[in-house]
Amino acid sequence: MKTPSRFLFSPRPARVTPVGWLILVGLSGAALYWIYRMIVGFMHDGEPFIFFFSAFLAWFIVFTVQDNRQLMAQHRALADARRGKSICDFARSFNLREVDTWVIRAVWNVLSESVNREGPDGFIIPIFVDDRLADEFMLEDEDDLLDTLEDMAFRAGRSTELLGTDGFSGPLVTVRDAVLLLNALPMTGARKDRLWMTVKP
């Protein structure tokens, strides 16, 4: 029998190496120390630039927190409005004779992981095929979109060599567009090896 999509490939390994994390932590520490020195300098010398910079930094932090809260509220409302929907409803939006269920599940899983939240205040947003990638999933930047497509392709066992070339570059507006694009990509050797599974009697 054909291998069910629940046997999807695991996510790609983290692309940030331990050395990369170490550099990131070091830069963050240096930035915090620089801010601290600026605040101390303002308290001692009263430098106007430091005051205005500190005020801007405080405004930016408050704005970011408020924007994040607003986004979470929108996502929670969307999750409530779509309660009861599932990946089965999502899959029925496609012709399963033509569209690989592995691609469907890979797109669902990757996008779900980007918006769903765990915990007491968490929520799960069922995905609709007409959801806009730039709106619900904030994939406005081309690099972010390409990274996401590569994650989906990896999990579905689709080659990414043709991504971005003629015929494999979009336009990508909705989730449906992403599914159909990935479905058109050739399967990897590893995926072909998993096309069929043996069922023990």
Results as ranks from 00 to 15, higher is better:
residue 19 V to N: 07
residue 51 F to K: 13
residue 121 D to L: 15
residue 177 D to V: 02
residue 184 A to E: 11
residue 80 D to G: 07
residue 154 F to Y: 08
residue 72 M to S: 14
residue 28 S to F: 07
residue 154 F to N: 03
residue 17 T to Q: 04
residue 1 M to A: 15
residue 117 R to G: 12
residue 2 K to V: 13
residue 122 G to W: 05
residue 190 A to R: 05
residue 65 V to I: 15
residue 38 M to T: 14
residue 83 R to L: 14
residue 82 R to T: 05
residue 107 V to Q: 01
residue 137 F to Q: 00
residue 200 K to F: 08
residue 192 K to T: 07
residue 169 S to T: 07
residue 128 F to R: 08
residue 142 E to C: 04
residue 175 V to E: 00
residue 31 A to K: 04
residue 201 P to R: 05
residue 30 A to I: 10
residue 20 G to N: 04
residue 1 M to G: 14
residue 61 I to L: 14
residue 140 E to F: 07
residue 158 R to I: 06
residue 32 L to W: 09
residue 73 A to Q: 15
residue 133 L to W: 02
residue 174 T to D: 08
residue 134 A to W: 05
residue 87 I to Y: 07
residue 18 P to D: 04
residue 81 A to D: 11
residue 85 K to I: 09
residue 87 I to A: 13
residue 148 T to K: 03
residue 52 F to K: 07
residue 43 M to F: 10
residue 178 A to I: 02
residue 200 K to H: 10
residue 92 R to M: 11
residue 15 R to P: 01
residue 62 V to I: 15
residue 88 C to L: 12
residue 122 G to V: 07
residue 194 R to G: 08
residue 181 L to C: 10
residue 168 F to M: 06
residue 46 G to K: 06
residue 12 R to T: 11
residue 6 R to W: 02
residue 180 L to Q: 05
residue 82 R to G: 02
residue 26 G to D: 08
residue 182 L to I: 05
residue 146 L to S: 10
residue 21 W to V: 08
residue 116 N to E: 11
residue 84 G to W: 04
residue 119 G to F: 05
residue 62 V to Y: 09
residue 89 D to I: 06
residue 172 L to G: 03
residue 27 L to W: 02
residue 26 G to Y: 03
residue 63 F to S: 12
residue 110 V to I: 02
residue 119 G to S: 12
residue 111 L to V: 03
residue 97 R to Y: 08
residue 75 H to T: 09
residue 103 V to D: 06
residue 74 Q to D: 14
residue 170 G to N: 04
residue 10 S to H: 06
residue 68 N to E: 15
residue 153 A to K: 01
residue 18 P to Y: 01
residue 190 A to N: 04
residue 69 R to G: 12
residue 142 E to M: 05
residue 96 L to H: 09
residue 133 L to F: 04
residue 14 A to H: 07
residue 122 G to D: 13
residue 89 D to G: 10
residue 36 Y to Q: 12
residue 141 D to K: 06
residue 121 D to P: 06
residue 49 F to S: 15
residue 39 I to S: 11
residue 80 D to E: 15
residue 129 V to D: 13
residue 176 R to N: 07
residue 145 L to E: 10
